[in-house]
Amino acid sequence: MMSDPRLLVVLLNYRTPQMTLRAAKAALADMPETAELVIVDNASGDGSMGIFEQALADWDLGARVRLILSGRNGGFGAGCNIGLAEQMSDGSAPDFFYLLNSDAFPDPGCIATLLDHMTRHPRAGFAASHVRGEDDLPHTTAFRFPSIAGEFEGAVRFGPVSRLLAHAIVAPPLPEKTTQVDWAAGASVMIRAATLEEIGRFDETFFLYFEETDLMKRGARAGWSCWYVPEARVVHIGSVSTGMKEWQRMPAYWFASRRHYFIKTHGRAYAAAAWGARLTGSALHALRCALTGRNPQDPAFFTRDLARHGLGLRSGSGRATARRPVSEDRT
């Protein structure tokens, strides 16, 4: 078992400096004494760095906390990669990285629980927390990898279909015990440095969405496991930097990320079939809602935008309705 592992905590900020400082305080209170924290500002351009510099001067923690300003906002993965490329303050390489969203706050013992799990499972590449909202309701953060069947099931939203395709449901019920899963959301996740050395960091083609799915898929293909550890708990507000709760229409980069994931992971033929399955399921869902008088669960223009994007046409959803983030969540 690894003794005194070197841990670097990575916080990504985009225009939420006070929230990020709250997350940093929660992380510092839960981190081992030897762990360090790096805050990456994702080219906020709103004075965040000045706020951080003043706060850190007041905290007077020396090399235990440092700031990095990104030269551009390349998205969630690109911002995280800046932190994941860092070393410890003494120049040594971290053994583990802990990614924490800027609006997520670890409970006491969360980080130690994840770290302990990783040290006891040498082939664990990722270990993710139980995530709950401020209302104490759990967030769905443990998933199966997307598939053609999973795309259809998730889009059609029809009980008999879901029972038939239960094995493919992307977001199954959360496990009650520590369980190996396909992938997990990155709001609070421990990552083994050796895993990144083998498979690489986040693919920066993804501006937002599907970047964790891709990273953990690459890890799985290389023999690294991903775990959901419900004993490690965080409170997560969600969608603060992205403004997702205010969206009236899915942004273009969601469709672009989805398409890139399927093409990269499975090839163009599979990606086309997955697109067709999602499109068909969404259309059937809309038809059933029209016939029964129910409100559709898809955002406005979703089926139209999905169809246009699948044909290589601009969806138009990236203009007035999408904000350019990004530091976190998507749950």
Rank of each mutant, 00 (worst) to 15 (best):
S239R: 09
A24E: 02
A307T: 07
A252K: 02
S89I: 08
A300I: 11
Y270F: 08
S70L: 08
F255R: 02
S92Y: 01
E197L: 07
F255C: 08
A274Q: 02
S48Q: 02
E33M: 10
T16W: 01
A27E: 13
N73E: 05
Y228Q: 07
V229G: 09
K245Q: 14
N13L: 08
L7P: 00
A286R: 11
A142H: 07
A193T: 11
D90A: 10
H266L: 12
V161H: 06
N13R: 05
D116L: 11
D46R: 09
A269S: 11
P296R: 05
D298N: 15
A85H: 10
P138I: 15
D214I: 05
A171L: 14
E198M: 09
R314H: 09
A171I: 05
T179I: 05
G219D: 00
R268I: 12
R221A: 10
A273V: 11
A128L: 10
R324E: 07
R64W: 01
F207E: 03
C226T: 12
K264M: 13
R66Q: 08
W59L: 03
T195H: 04
L84N: 00
V234R: 02
L114D: 02
E176I: 12
F302T: 01
A57C: 02
H236P: 02
P32G: 05
I263R: 13
I82Q: 00
L279E: 06
D60G: 04
D305P: 07
A168D: 13
P17C: 10
I111A: 10
H266I: 10
A220C: 05
R201K: 09
V170F: 03
E134V: 14
I68N: 00
S225E: 03
R163A: 12
A277I: 08
V181A: 04
A222M: 09
V240Q: 14
H130R: 15
P146V: 12
A232P: 07
V40L: 01
S257H: 07
F145H: 06
H260N: 06
W254E: 04
N13S: 08
R201C: 07
V170W: 01
A104M: 00
N295Q: 14
F97C: 05
R324G: 04
G79T: 02
E134M: 15
A55M: 03
D95F: 02
A155I: 04
V65S: 03
A272W: 15
H260A: 12
Y270I: 09
G276R: 12
G50V: 02
A27R: 12
R22N: 15
A85K: 09
T280Y: 05
Q18L: 15
